[in-house]
Design a protein around this nucleic acid. Sequence first.
DNA 1: CGCGGAAATGAAAAATCTTCTCATAGCGCT
DNA 2: AGCGCTATGAGAAGATTTTTCATTTCCGCG
Lengths: 161, 161
Amino acid sequence: MESQDLRRAGLKVTLPRMKILEILERRQGDHHMSAEDVYKALLEAGEDIGLATVYRVLTQFEAAGLVTRHHFEGGQAVFELAGKEHHDHIVCNQCGRIFEFQNETIEQCQEKVAREAGFLIRDHSLILYGDCQRPNCAYRAQGQGRGKSPASPGRARGSKS
Amino acid sequence: MESQDLRRAGLKVTLPRMKILEILERRQGDHHMSAEDVYKALLEAGEDIGLATVYRVLTQFEAAGLVTRHHFEGGQAVFELAGKEHHDHIVCNQCGRIFEFQNETIEQCQEKVAREAGFLIRDHSLILYGDCQRPNCAYRAQGQGRGKSPASPGRARGSKS
DNA sequence: CGCGGAAATGAAAAATCTTCTCATAGCGCT
DNA sequence: AGCGCTATGAGAAGATTTTTCATTTCCGCG
């Protein structure tokens, strides 16, 4: 009954919002989805929901605290269901795999640094970019251009510095 | 003689590249500039350099390690001259002021976390968003839309979570 | 100091990602 | 079931960044 989630968030229960919430909840594996990912999943599920609505709804969900938005490299924002503990991310440059972690020491240092600098922290973004050393990591030829990433598995981009 | 910087970076010494480098070096105050900022500064300096060139050159500078690109919230990437020590950023949600900091403990924790997760870190991005508590912070009315930020002082956006 | 070729530039078009507009449809309440 | 307000869909519009391609500029060389 995720309609309760919507009502609780002060959002009218509509079919598009229900379906999008379902997509986010039922997602297996990597639960980080771009608006486009959600849109495609809806199409596959036979739902006729516009991309504009997906963006709108995801933004509302974010405002309501139902989802969290991340700006990984690659231009597209990705969303994940909130609810679990706060965590940060490691993104594989090669295959796009995403690892989540929590580190209390880092959190505390951030607080301390901000306090000393005279800031009141509202939010933060910590993303590590690297190569996951797993054998099945979808290594692509070095010097890849900036072509479109394959549909599903990875949203990797070239590394920096 | 910043032409040496260019040659050293393996880039042909051209007028646009020189001028852009100058803009970045001469910049007083907040040295974080978007491509648009650089473009406008060039116009003010009487240089007739296209925006496409600015983007191209900044990207080359980044590849050459001359500048670093950051993706703060707000959609626009910002650049700063590299060369100084590595550092992370605190961005004021209200006035856009940027504070830089270094924290060895955080760096070490990141390394440790990544190692334990089986990642080889190539890069990272740590950005804290908050409110600088200074009296002259350009507080804007709450619930600001998402209009264009005023030219120079701030590129603040609404906060999250 | 002018030449020639490779590389860089400018302008405009295109590509991407996201938001806005507005007419229509749907939800919640009575 | 009916009403009013909000949400939606489709497409246009906006914002940022990249690409295309004809022209210009830089650099090594005579």
